[in-house]
Amino acid sequence: MHTAEFIVSSARLGELYECSALLRRTRLRAEEIVDEARALLDEAERHGDAERVLTLTDELEEARQAYAKVLNAYVIICRRIDAERQEILQAQIEHDRLSGVA
């Protein structure tokens, strides 16, 4: 791998790590929101508030869907990081092989 390619790949990998950190925090917050929505729904059910149960059931489902989207994005970015790291390692191995480095 040429120096310029390595710099670009390293920068791209750094950006992917930053995205994964942001998505990890977002995922944790989305998980908290789902837990909070579930707790509110449980409370409404205990109090027999049928109207509130309907509203909170919808909100819990929306929270779950949003969480699933964030989780999916997090998994995708983690896979991309792994692929990018693998490409860098493979290129380095190829470079070392062609250079005669053992």
Results as ranks from 00 to 15, higher is better:
residue 93 I to M: 14
residue 3 T to K: 13
residue 82 D to M: 10
residue 18 E to F: 02
residue 76 I to P: 00
residue 27 R to G: 02
residue 9 S to C: 05
residue 33 I to M: 03
residue 8 V to Q: 07
residue 64 R to I: 09
residue 101 V to A: 11
residue 73 A to Y: 02
residue 14 G to A: 09
residue 41 L to C: 03
residue 67 Y to R: 15
residue 19 C to V: 02
residue 65 Q to H: 14
residue 73 A to D: 12
residue 94 E to V: 14
residue 90 Q to C: 07
residue 46 R to L: 04
residue 11 A to I: 13
residue 73 A to Q: 10
residue 10 S to H: 07
residue 92 Q to K: 09
residue 73 A to R: 10
residue 4 A to M: 09
residue 53 V to C: 15
residue 97 R to P: 01
residue 62 E to N: 12
residue 95 H to E: 12
residue 76 I to N: 11
residue 3 T to H: 10
residue 1 M to D: 05
residue 101 V to P: 00
residue 53 V to D: 07
residue 79 R to K: 13
residue 84 E to A: 15
residue 93 I to Q: 14
residue 81 I to E: 11
residue 1 M to G: 11
residue 57 T to P: 05
residue 13 L to Q: 03
residue 25 R to P: 00
residue 11 A to M: 06
residue 31 E to T: 08
residue 82 D to P: 01
residue 58 D to R: 15
residue 60 L to P: 03
residue 29 R to W: 04
residue 48 G to Q: 08
residue 40 L to C: 05
residue 36 E to T: 03
residue 75 V to M: 07
residue 77 I to E: 08
residue 94 E to Q: 11
residue 46 R to T: 06
residue 58 D to W: 09
residue 15 E to M: 11
residue 62 E to Y: 08
residue 57 T to S: 15
residue 51 E to V: 05
residue 95 H to S: 04
residue 19 C to N: 07
residue 79 R to N: 12
residue 24 R to Y: 03
residue 54 L to M: 09
residue 61 E to L: 15
residue 89 L to R: 13
residue 8 V to R: 13
residue 45 E to R: 15
residue 31 E to F: 01
residue 92 Q to A: 05
residue 96 D to R: 13
residue 87 E to S: 14
residue 89 L to S: 13
residue 1 M to A: 09
residue 102 A to G: 05
residue 58 D to Y: 13
residue 78 C to Y: 00
residue 39 A to N: 04
residue 96 D to T: 02
residue 36 E to L: 10
residue 14 G to W: 05
residue 50 A to H: 09
residue 34 V to W: 03
residue 69 K to I: 12
residue 81 I to W: 03
residue 51 E to R: 09
residue 89 L to M: 07
residue 25 R to T: 04
residue 26 T to Y: 02
residue 3 T to A: 12
residue 92 Q to T: 12
residue 75 V to D: 06
residue 73 A to H: 06
residue 1 M to E: 09
residue 20 S to I: 01
residue 65 Q to T: 12
residue 50 A to C: 02
residue 46 R to Q: 11
residue 54 L to G: 14
residue 98 L to M: 14
residue 9 S to L: 12
residue 58 D to A: 15
residue 38 R to N: 08
residue 91 A to S: 15
residue 34 V to M: 03
residue 102 A to S: 14
residue 74 Y to C: 00
residue 98 L to T: 13
residue 63 A to S: 15
residue 63 A to I: 10
residue 50 A to R: 14
residue 48 G to V: 08
residue 74 Y to R: 04
residue 45 E to V: 12
residue 62 E to V: 15
residue 20 S to V: 01
residue 14 G to R: 11
residue 100 G to Y: 11
residue 70 V to D: 05
residue 64 R to C: 08
residue 22 L to S: 07
residue 16 L to S: 03
residue 21 A to D: 03
